[in-house]
Design a protein around this nucleic acid. Structure first.
Length: 1038
RNA sequence: GGGCCAGUAGCUUAGUUUGGUGGAGCAUCCGGCUGAUAACCGGAAGGCCCCCGGUUCAAAUCCGGGCUGGCCCA
């Protein structure tokens, strides 16, 4: 019963919302989405990995985009016969979660968190992680995405954390995990380092002092190296000066001193004539030169205060000499490692100078700048002070200027495996390709060590225990921890519980204590390719089947996020890439191309769109409008357009099919053999065949946009606007014939194939079409069908080009009519065509009826009908004559175009330019036609369609008859008459019109199912203003 | 401040690899077609192809320099 009701419903052309809710309830009833998760189980894997979102905020349009891109590829592979595991995943840890909780609790720093208590705090975090998960599930389902959200991986689960621990221990065993100082952006007021994305939010343009400082060279009288800095407070911690090894440096005498600096900077530093160059040398010659420290508050513990060389020294600004304080800058720090420089850090965590810096102890470092400058001035070490405008980061929460600080941290030595990262990247196919060696590859080439530790609370604890005696160990599993600590019950693998676990030291017997860090949550998600399986503790076999993953897809912002962490972890732990192909899709912007943000109020509400336009329209728009990696301007109008241009047409073709199939009781089955069907059927099937291969190839190459575009072209142009339109009559007749059966078979086969081809992109409409066809062997869902294969034998080589020619001829003929305002309803005596002749009679009659001409003739030459003009074709002339093309063209412009056409017709003509004579023939020219009134011409390239516009009385009358038929049909439609209702008609009007109707009486009556047709005044009726007079028509039901 | 991507009709875009009369769709107007169609067909109007230079007989396309927007970084 339910089945029948559904079919009844489908007769009418419905809106997308009805279709989708109907499909959704069908899926629910038959449990389709859940069954699809297991579809093709036991077959070869297509290994997809879902990137885990954080469910503490509702999903937005860009998540819809991601899910669409992922789902479409997975559905395609599923149809191609692969088993596609689609485990959902949730990212749980990290600062965003902590900050959301801090906000909720009304606290804003670590002291307050600790006062509140770590245990209740992380409980709050855990509770808030899934605060919006309901919306995520709802969105995923409404979008028709197949994703297992009932058994997802969850990064805060102990199993997951345990796998992460294991991997960290692997890295540690390889010696890639190190503890040491890292330069991190640090907010002295909040007492914490900041993540890079937090820093990025807080850049502002500021003015800082920029000073030129003299460093006295040791053992050389009155000689100074001139350096430049915008952070005077770091001079206290100076341990070296850096120069560029390949640049030239000068020693110049200036106002009684000798100064050393880069030659390229001289113009910006000193005035011409005020200095004398004493010596030139390369930067590398300066290496090792010792100088006297400016300050000696902090004592270096090894060799310091000499010149080093470094590539990062530029000639853009300053003096070409950079002062180095390894504790306060990343370049400085790295150079410090290279040269084994001491690290002076006389600055406390709150950003003030420590006690050793006697003059300024307790002062915030930046506030001490003016006094430091003054001190240098009085000591004669200052060469100049300027103000310097540049971008500087501030804390996004408290607006304090950030300091780059060397902090103790655990880091993974990614720089050591840079080459391996790069060669692993070579094995990955990127969409779009330019990311591989561009944004991503460049990033890898300069990969930095990965600062892994975070001085926070809600995260995977770093499983590193240390004894006061210096003994250290890494714990790689729960069992290991229990065995080592002797503690049987561990509530969970989070702070504060793991903090309380101590391990007796095997060396000294004291208690080893865990370091206080959690790890960067990007490491969590980067471990998803194994931790989601709880490998290596479980699922060994499944792991082998799923490594590496075939496909991932996320937004381009993940380049240095998940795409990187996924590759970084797998390279560090397994030495191999963890994924083979990746689609980076672009962002979804508002209709103006601006980023959507709540504060701007330009966020499109996906739920409203689901209701008004439907999920398929959204999916189709996102994939068909342009490549996924081009930004999408998202608006209701854009989605509506997708609905209209493609889905609407598909719905209408389906509606047409249903209307007549139901009327005729047609069911697909025992089809008419293809070779017995008319040309047009074979043509459509042949087209369809080409489409199937093309779309298969597009999907296979992850080219979703071309797949969608070619399907759309087929459905709109070939199927709807050509096949259905020119074949309508075949469906109308009441008697059944094999021709009619062939038409139905062709249409239903095409619709079935289309539903399969677009199933990966629009799962709802494809289902609706598929189930509405009445297929005898229909499965529960289109999504269980295998992807169609091009059928041998349907491909007809000649029909394609022949039909293209027919369409072209028809288009040209209609254009010719349009030029002269001759409506298609007006029959014409003949059309003369110059061009290849479509061989098949069936196709010729199609041209006659589409163009409404009685006769068709093909001629090789139409020059007898009209004159031509000629002009230069630069495409031909340019390559042949090169530089002479211009002047020759000028010369030819002097001739009358008509005369030129005539002369060239007889043979090449000579054109003399600059003493050389060039032969110009037909092939160098383009021709235009000058037509007499009787003829109308449409042409494209060599194809020309000429219409005879002479309208005889008989042709005119036939035109009137067709007008009348059309008016009557319109009236029938307005009266809502059934298609098969018979009528009686009365007409009154001008004599010549009535006479025309009388001559075509039989034709009019049969076309309009009229039983009786009478003439004479009628009381009521509709008055029609035909171009040639008025006609009143009255219709009554027979 | 650096890197990547983009800028073409009122709007959305194709064309740029390989130089040779810039094509579509939406919207507007006119005409047509309509026994599925909010569909479609024809025509009109609408383009300093972001700007400035360069190469070339010829540049939307190649090269250089800018500008604007988006993204990623700092």
């Amino acid at each position: 019963m339910a089945e029948e009701g559904t079919e009844q419903e489908q007769k009418k052309v419905k809106g997308p919302a009805d279709i989708e809710s109907e499909v959704l309830s069908h899926w629910k009833e038959k449990d389709i989405l859940r069954r699809l998760l297991r579809h093709n189980e036991g077959k070869p894997y297509f290994r997809f990995l879902e990137g885990p979102p954080t469910a503490n905020a509702p999903p937005g349009v860009h998540h819809i985009f991601s899910r669409t891109v992922k789902d479409t590829v997975c559905r395609y592979r599923n149809m191609k016969g692969s088993f596609v595991p689609r485990m959902g995943g949730w990212d749980c840890h990290g600062l965003p979660v902590e900050i959301a909780v801090e906000k909720k609790l009304g606290i804003e720093n670590k002291d307050q968190i600790e006062k509140y208590g770590i245990e209740p705090f992380i409980k709050q975090c855990r509770d808030s992680v899934f605060s919006h998960i309901g919306l995520w599930s709802k969105m995923t389902e409404r979008l028709g995405v197949v994703l297992d959200l009932e058994h997802p991986y969850i990064t805060m689960k102990d199993d997951y954390i345990e796998s992460v621990w294991w991997s960290l221990k692997e890295i540690w065993k390889k010696g890639f995990l190190d503890e040491g100082h890292m330069i991190v952006p640090y907010c002295p007021r909040c007492g914490t380092s900041l993540s890079s994305h937090e820093v990025a939010q807080g850049y502002r343009e500021v003015e800082d002092p920029s000073i030129f400082v003299r460093f006295k060279v040791k053992d050389q009288e009155n000689t100074f190296i001139l350096a430049w800095t915008t952070t005077p407070w770091t001079l206290i911690s100076n341990v070296a000066l850096a120069v560029s090894p390949d640049e030239t440096y000068l020693k110049a005498s200036y106002k009684g001193s000798e100064l050393i600096f880069a030659e390229k900077r001289v113009g910006a530093l000193l005035k011409e004539g005020e200095y004398v160059v004493l010596q030139r040398m390369l930067g590398s010659d300066l290496e090792g030169t010792r100088y006297e420290p400016l300050y000696s508050f902090a004592k270096p513990d090894r060799a310091a205060h000499f010149v080093a060389t470094a590539d990062f020294v530029t000639m853009e600004d300053g003096t070409g000499v950079v002062h180095i304080a390894p504790a306060f800058g990343e370049d400085d720090f790295n150079l410090g490692r290279t040269y084994d420089l001491p690290m002076l850090q006389p600055v406390k965590e709150d950003g003030t100078f420590s006690d050793v810096v006697t003059p300024w102890k307790g002062r915030f470092v930046k506030d001490a700048d003016p006094e430091i400058i003054e001190d240098l001035r009085t000591r004669g070490l200052l060469e100049g002070v300027h103000s310097y405008a540049h971008q500087y980061p501030f804390c996004w929460r408290c607006d304090t200027p950030l300091l780059y600080y060397a902090r103790k941290a655990f880091y993974i030595r990614m720089s050591r495996i840079r080459e391996l990262l790069l060669s692993n990247n070579e094995q990955i196919t990127w969409y779009p390709g330019n990311i591989k060696n561009g944004r991503f590859g460049k990033f890898l080439e300069e990969v930095k060590d990965w600062n892994l530790s975070r001085e926070r609370y809600w995260g995977t604890p770093l499983p590193f225990w240390r004894c006061p005696c210096g003994n250290e160990l890494m714990v790689g599993s729960r069992e290991e921890l229990k065995a080592l600590s002797g503690i049987e019950h561990i509530p969970e693998l989070h702070r504060p519980y793991v903090d309380e676990i101590t391990i007796p030291c095997k060396k000294c017997g004291k208690q080893m204590v865990r370091v206080p860090y959690v790890i960067d949550c990007w490491y969590d998600s980067g471990s998803a390719f194994f931790a989601s399986l709880h490998y290596p503790f479980e699922n060994e076999e499944e792991w082998k089947r799923q490594f590496p993953r075939d496909y991932i897809a996320e937004g381009i912002d993940q380049t240095r996020g998940w795409f990187y962490s996924l590759l970084a972890v797998s390279t560090a732990v397994f030495g191999q890439p963890s994924y083979r192909s990746v689609i980076c899709h672009a962002h979804v912007l508002d209709a103006e191309g601006k980023k959507m943000s709540k504060s701007k109020g330009n966020v499109v509400d996906p739920w409203k769109l689901f209701e008004s336009e439907g999920a398929d329209a959204i999916r189709w728009y996102l994939l068909s409008s342009s490549d996924p990696w081009k930004p999408k301007l998202f608006s209701v109008e854009a989605v509506r357009d997708a609905n209209r241009s493609f889905l609407g047409t598909l719905r209408n073709v389906m509606g047409f099919y249903r209307t007549y199939a139901d009327l005729d009781g047609y069911r697909p089955g025992s089809p008419v053999p293809v070779n017995e069907r008319p040309e047009i059927d074979r043509w459509l099937l042949s087209k369809l065949d080409e489409l199937v291969s093309a779309v298969d190839g597009f999907y296979d190459r992850y080219d979703l946009t071309d797949a969608a575009a070619s399907i759309q072209r087929f459905v709109v142009d070939d199927l709807s606007n050509w096949y259905v339109r020119v074949n309508r009559r075949r469906f109308w007749g009441t008697e059944s014939s094999s021709d009619k059966k062939a038409a139905y078979d062709t249409l239903s086969e095409s619709l079935k194939a289309v539903s399969l081809l677009c199933a990966p992109i629009i799962p709802f409409h494809s289902e609706w079409v598929y189930r509405g066809l009445g297929l005898p062997d229909a499965r529960d869902s289109v999504h269980f069908e295998p992807f169609p294969e091009a059928r041998a034998g349907t491909h007809d080589e000649d029909l394609g080009p022949a039909m293209e020619l027919v369409k072209k001829i028809v288009d040209l003929g209609r254009a010719a009519r349009g030029l002269r305002n001759i409506k298609t309803r007006q029959p014409l005596a003949r059309a003369v065509i110059k061009g290849p002749e479509p061989l098949v009679e069936g196709l010729l009659s199609m041209i006659r009826s589409e163009l409404n001409v009685r006769e068709l003739s093909f001629e090789k030459d139409l020059s007898g009908y009209f004159e031509r003009t000629a002009e230069v074709d630069p495409k031909k002339l340019g390559p042949r004559l090169r530089a002479a093309a211009g002047p020759v063209k000028e010369e030819l412009l002097k001739l009358d175009p008509r005369e030129l056409a005539l002369r060239v017709e007889k043979g090449p003509i000579d054109v003399a330019v600059g003493g050389t004579t060039y032969q110009i023939g037909k092939e160098d020219l383009r021709f235009h036609e000058v037509l007499p009134d009787r003829w109308a011409l449409g042409s494209e390239g060599d194809l020309e369609v000429l219409l005879d516009l002479e309208i005889t009385e008989e042709l005119w009358e036939e035109g009137i008859a067709r007008e009348v038929v059309r008016r009557v049909q319109t009236m029938r439609k307005d009266m809502d008459l059934p298609y098969d209702a018979h009528i009686n008609v009365a007409m009154d009007g001008e004599r010549k019109l009535i006479s025309a109707v009388e001559h075509f009486r039989a034709y009019i009556m049969s076309e309009t199912l009229t039983d009786s047709l009478v003439f004479g005044p009628t009381g009521s009726g509709t008055e029609w203003d035909l171009d040639d007079g008025k006609l009143v028509i009255t219709i009554t039901v027979a």
